[in-house]
Design a binder for these strands. Structure first.
Lengths: 168, 168
DNA sequence: TGACGATATGTTATATTATAACATCGTCAA
DNA sequence: TTGACGATGTTATAATATAACATATCGTCA
């Protein structure tokens, strides 16, 4: 089965990231059209910036990059675009980094978990039902009604682990 | 079995919070002594501020309170104390709130999960091995070496749920 | 068409959270 | 007693985020 429209696996070896970006932008365009949401040039540009890599990107880093094309850009310019993208599930905010990362499965709502490499910064988005359900189960036992799960895991990705062992 | 030295259960009905604070301070003093760490008056005062309630407290709120007794207090005053308390596992930082909450089991290292009520702010610290292990298992499958888990769950606590249903 | 309403963006200012850098103080031990 | 170290004081500034109001753009309907 060809994975024609899927993001690369977590911590995959080098891949064609340009197509990765293109694909994310295409999917976003499609989703926004379906939902009558306006993926404007500005929002699209911010989405592309989030997808520059698989590492979370800070708002002010995006702002700086954005200013190259968009001379008058100010903090609200970026934050408003980020708000839109988050609302539509196109990106996620990583709370422990104050940074933003592209969503790998924007089509459907999901509970995700993030594995964040402390060395290279690469971040993988998981959608593991076992984890999500373990949280729901325990919360349920305590009578707590879950609305949102924020799960961010720091550590070393497979590619950085020899390095991690070398220089601890 | 008497729970002589245990924090109250998550989302417990009203309890004697003064003894809750006292107990946290006593345990901290004991732990610091065991570890040859200096729980100075300032650090102790900041710890008491974190324990004012079971809701996470922001650093600048603590700073304001601290200034009543400590006229010259400045941001570093608070942040340095917080750093110390975190290092010694006496408090936790809630990433999604930029706020700090007392640790309910400072004696031993643990992986905790937080249930945070979006209405009253009350926060319960869990130490559920099922959740922690579900994360470790999945990360392990992907070759990711976990160093720290940040798990923060938003929702409504049992006491706020009727209210939540009423005013959604 | 063109005027209106809604949504998006521009612009300026400011709030909130956190850290850098260096000075001073206090304590303990040699 | 002095020197080293850890803690705190002090000033300044960095980094992240939002408020508030002005202007522009787009789609719709009279």
């Amino acid at each position: 089965m060809p994975l024609s429209r899927a993001q690369p696996s977590p911590f995959q070896a080098s891949h064609d990231h340009d197509s990765c970006i293109d694909e994310a932008l295409d999917r976003a365009a499609q989703l926004c059209e379906e939902r009558d949401a306006r993926l404007t040039a500005l929002r699209r540009e911010v989405l592309a910036l989030v997808w520059r890599g698989h590492e979370p990107v800070g708002a002010y880093a995006m702002l700086e990059a954005l200013r190259r094309s968009h001379s008058g850009a100010a903090p609200p310019t970026v934050y408003r675009a980020l708000d839109f993208l988050i609302e539509h599930g196109l990106i996620h905010r990583i709370e422990s980094l104050n940074a933003y990362v592209g969503c790998s499965r924007p089509e459907r709502p999901h509970v995700s978990q993030f594995l964040i490499c402390g060395r290279c910064g690469a971040t993988a988005e998981l959608d593991d039902p076992m984890i999500a359900e373990a949280v729901l189960r325990r919360a349920g036992e305590l009578g707590f009604a879950v609305e949102r799960q924020t799960i961010e895991v720091r550590g070393s990705c497979p590619r950085c682990q020899p390095a991690a062992a070398q220089a601890p």
